[in-house]
């Protein structure tokens, strides 16, 4: 594994069993997260972005299973764990969860246990992973809370979640995620439930954390604006597959996949002409259990060609580090992924 890479996912396939149906939530996803960098995973609801992230730490619901692919995690150069080999809830994966790879969730309002003080909830993760005295833990937590911009941390330490506002709760969630100093932070739509001004605060907070601790971040979002603001690399997902993957500027300046360009076109911009209709992508997201012969996006695609119904398009590397999964680039001079 490349020494710059903290997490690499290769050919991940995650399935859900819903009654008798099998839903292929994630299909052949490969990506890597560089040390100290942010990877954004974008896509609409149900495209498998959260499932990909949850697969990393085996936090899938009981109906979900990783059935193919490897997930490798390297906390430092020369050390490597194969996370996909661990059993769900095994001791090994639990020692990674929270300590090495921690998560922030979408809804801070419901992600904190209402019956414990926030101090207790932050302590819990610290005591699980580190041998530390109660006083030391308290001191460290209060320092962290202060650093995360929570006023009067000594007092707030003994407060219950319902005594915090939404933005403050998300800061507490970040404190829980950061208290063990993880190498990788998975933020699953961390700002979706917050209002816009708070969104910006939380995003800049995450950037500061990254600068101070050198944490790598996977940022899951459906908001292109957040990606542009916060990410170094982007993976665009559609129906469980990565359709486009590359450095931020390349994907934004030169979107290759019709889905990516459609997504970018549908973002409203300040000063947009009030008379022009905002572009949207026609049709609906297909059901996760639908099986496609060809490209999953073809029924909604504007640039459909004769190959599109034939089979899944392979991944093409069109330029350095910029990959796309679309028939349009077949034979366009790029090279095969593998």
């Amino acid at each position: 594994m490349n020494k710059d890479i903290v997490l690499s996912i290769d050919g991940l396939k995650t399935q859900f069993k819903v009654g008798k149906r099998i839903v292929h939530a994630v299909n052949d996803v490969s990506l890597s997260v560089k040390r100290g960098k942010t990877l954004g995973i974008v896509g609409e609801s149900g495209c498998g972005k959260s499932v990909t992230a949850h697969s990393v730490v085996q936090l899938l619901p009981k109906t979900g299973n990783i059935c193919k692919g490897t997930i490798k995690y390297s906390p430092e150069v020369g050390k490597e764990y194969v996370l996909s080999d661990y059993k769900r809830d095994s001791k090994e994966i639990r020692s990674i969860r929270g300590k090495h790879i921690s998560m922030i969730f979408q809804d801070p309002l419901s992600s904190l246990d209402p019956v414990y003080t926030i101090g207790k909830q932050i302590e819990e993760i610290l005591f699980e992973h580190e041998k530390i005295s109660k006083n030391e833990a308290r001191k460290r937590i209060i320092d962290l809370l202060a650093k995360l911009g929570i006023p009067k941390p000594e007092e707030r330490y003994n407060h219950y979640p319902h005594q915090f506002s939404g933005g403050m709760k998300q800061r507490v969630m970040i404190a829980i995620a950061m208290v063990c100093n993880p190498k990788l932070l998975i933020a699953d739509e961390p700002t979706t439930a917050l209002d816009v001004t708070i969104q910006a605060q939380i995003l800049s907070l995450m950037r500061d954390i990254q600068k101070d601790y050198g944490t790598s971040i996977i940022l899951i979002t459906h908001n292109m604006g957040i990606v542009a603001e916060a990410c170094d690399e982007v993976a665009v997902m559609y129906m469980g597959r990565i359709v486009e993957y590359g450095p931020l500027e390349k994907v934004f300046n030169n979107p290759l996949h019709p889905y990516t360009s459609a997504l970018l076109r549908s973002v409203p911009v300040l000063g947009i002409d009030k008379n022009t209709e905002l572009r949207s992508i026609r049709g609906n997201t297909p059901d996760g259990s639908d099986v496609f012969q060809g490209c999953e996006f073809s029924p909604r695609c504007d640039q459909i060609c004769q190959h599109c119904k034939d089979g899944h398009p392979p991944v093409r590397v069109v330029e350095e580090g910029h990959e796309v999964r679309c028939w349009l680039y077949e034979g366009s001079g790029g090279s095969d992924h593998k």
Partner: peptide
Amino acid sequence: KAARSKGIS
């Protein structure tokens, strides 16, 4: 889910 993500048993 958040509690599980902390790594506790």
